[in-house]
Write a protein that binds this DNA or RNA. Structure first.
Lengths: 254, 254
DNA sequence: CCAAAAGTGTTCTACCTACACCCATGG
DNA sequence: CCATGGGTGTAGGTAGAACACTTTTGG
């Protein structure tokens, strides 16, 4: 293990890494996947290294697959974090102890002293499809609701803020939902997704009109039963129309 | 020179660099500053290295200052280029010859074999204020109109395209012009700036109404004489209101 | 039968768009 | 005096915002 890890490190870039903000939607809430570092209570975004022969986009997709099992996911670069001192709320002393616990003696000195620029990607995933797996230096993964995200290691809190901002920009110019919702969903579910991401309430009727006008949804002959109320229709995305709308752009002006 | 260059290299990151798309506005046209590599006809964007103790933003500002003499300029990261093989239109053979000519024997092998991720920044500068200076590996700088930009080295044509796209996005959500125009300018000049950036014509009266509505302009008691027509009023930006609008955002919906 | 939530259509308003006439300047 | 381009205001259209009543479902 240690040996292959060392070999892995030597085949990767030393000054550039990737950190992924992986967003999921569950129980009407937007959540983000965080990892807890081995034997510590320090949390961070899932991240990884870039092989020397690999593009950064490919590396981000690989890292996403390693952590969630998912491929063909909406994944987008949003910002590159290049502060010389990528701060943490911990003192240098505490950070060193934490890193030594999680990484072992061989790596923590390297990690704390090396100047690394991190390319931030964000992903939107279907919550129930995710088979999350911890990293070699972490022993727990967990979905956190955005307002509950704790103080994170390094500059990862800033990363979450910027990723969320990028997601909000995104949703105003491109349709969102294909990768965040199950195949079939109701209009109120889609609305709650938009409301959660944008932290804003919309009028039910206007929302429906606007989304239908994009011409990316197929209304199905099924309804979701179970609630003590009128059963809503199920919809699904028309994949080709959805992809066209991703390229051409839409205007979510609410 | 060679010695200090080597020392400079050793104090910088080896796997990350910065390339700047520097836009200026002159004679009613949007232009971009390009450099020609020594003794060759290969052109590229101005770029530079990042010192180990320096943030990427600081490095970008330093590089901008080195090439243009300007400080306190609108400068923004727009994308990080991380393809493993950052293509050029030249064959590897031709590229090697070109690099050897420009960089000298000591550096070209390094340059061609090293995997480097480049962080793209774009800047908006006041054309007449620029005192452009060539780099150590270039012997000519020149402003190019966007449609005339030739085939560039590496992936720099893609960089120009993405920078322009980012600039166009920018202008729809934030006011633009403070750094691209001289202190005093007329409404038609400002309009031509917008028209050039967005490659679109606007109605004179509607444009004026919209820009005035942002409440970032001061109308002066001076006019620009010299044209064979009615003298237009001069305006200038109210700096504090402009900066507030940069933060709060505006909507340029034309 | 009642509470909860979804289905549907119309009116109002505000902002963007289109448009015309007069005036100053230089040649 | 004429050509060029700038100064200004108004009317119309479109798309977003506001809004109510009826229907279905489970308890």
């Amino acid at each position: 293990m240690e040996r292959s890890l060392k070999e892995h490190f030597e085949q990767t870039l030393q000054e550039v890494s990737i950190d992924c903000a992986i967003f999921g939607f569950h129980a009407g809430e937007l959540k983000i996947l965080l990892l807890r570092w081995k034997g510590t209570d320090g949390w961070s975004l899932p991240g990884g290294r870039i092989y020397k022969e690999e593009s950064t986009d490919d590396a981000a997709n690989r890292i996403l697959k390693e952590r969630t099992g998912l491929t063909d996911i909406f994944l987008q670069q949003y910002y590159t974090f290049g502060n010389a001192n990528r701060l943490t709320h911990l003192s240098k002393q505490d950070l060193m102890e934490l890193l030594e616990l999680a990484l072992g003696k061989d790596y923590f000195h390297d990690k704390i002293n090396r100047r690394v620029v991190s390319i931030g990607y964000f992903a939107l995933v279907e919550f129930d499809q995710v088979q999350a797996t911890a990293d070699w230096y972490t022993d727990e993964f967990r979905w956190w609701e955005i307002p509950d995200v704790p103080k994170l290691l390094f500059d990862h809190n800033e990363m979450v803020v910027r990723a969320l901002h990028a997601l909000r920009q995104q949703i105003r110019n491109q349709p969102v939902g294909y990768n965040l919702l199950p195949e079939k969903f109701t209009m109120p579910e889609l609305q709650r997704l938009y409301e959660t991401i944008l932290d804003k309430q919309f009028d039910r009727r206007n929302f429906q009109k606007l989304l239908v006008s994009y011409d990316i949804l197929e209304k199905l002959d099924e309804k979701r039963t179970g609630g003590a109320n009128k059963s809503p229709f199920l919809y699904r995305f028309n994949k080709s129309k959805y992809e066209k709308a991703m390229i051409d752009g839409v205007s979510f002006a609410m």
